[in-house]
Amino acid sequence: MRPLVEEMIGGPAWLADLAMIAVQIGAIFAVIMASAIVLVYAERKVSAFMQMRIGPNRVGPWGILQTTADMLKLLSKEDIVPRAAERRVWALAPVLLFVPAVAAYAVLPLDAGLVFADLNIGIFYFVAISSQATLPFLMAGWASNNKYALLGGMRTVAQMISYEIPLVFSLLGVVMLTGSMKMSDIVGAQRDFWFILIQPAAFLVYVIAATAETNRTPFDLVEAESEIIAGPFTEYSGMRWSLFFLAEYANLVAVSAIAATVFLGGWQGPWLPGWLWFTAKVVMMIYVFMWFRWTFPRIRVDQLMSFGWKGLLPLALVNVVVTGIGIYIAQQWRG
């Protein structure tokens, strides 16, 4: 595409670079928006089928335009700012939450060579960016000046920090195996077999920690409706609220895509084109997360903590040690 852009612009090289970047960012935004719209519909349909309901079925055929209609409604809603809120911080929070969700997409390899930035620290970048999501939640919770929101904000901090660590450790095993943090290297190393086969424990830890990272049931303590109304989102409405919503689904896609890339062989697969394989794997992971959400109840905050620190983290650490020993034995055996 680059030569085409250069030809069209015909100007200096930096101009073409700028245009390329704009196109790529635009593409990422388009992917996020489209996937959010599709996912909201999918989540509602999946939950409906699990609950013996029909789900959205009025707007458009099979209700597929329901999310679009909802979006339009949210956009046209009045912007209500609580009088007691700390206005600037309050307004900044949803935007700031959206940024890391989008930035994480930069390193996702959709197909061979189809990646915005194939950084040599790809996984590290993803982890660093996604942990930024803690702060906006706390900002929203504190600035809303609402006790439920504050409780939700505090819960987020505790939860994200506790589950960030097992998440990183679960990815570490794969990094040790490939010796690289570059996404394309990790996918390339899975040409013969997927890493889920030799890192099942790491995959398990990753899925659990990722559920907690995306604040979905059974770890949806942040927005636990029956306890703290909607947590940090309590005071948000209209488009500001939908930014939170959008970020949540963007995060869901991101963690599913990382799972597909790191453990399920990324774009690798026979017969079909790579991007189709990748999409199929991501969709499957998303379905697993949805399945969790509509079957499990929510765990309590102290159980969340003890499970994270006493269950997941030791398991992830043991996995790292076992992986190390395994690598050593394999090296000795090969000579």
Partner: peptide, 8 residues
């Protein structure tokens, strides 16, 4: 307890 499906 957060399990919507049970309710349905």
């Amino acid at each position: 307890l957060g399990g919507t499906t049970g309710m349905m």
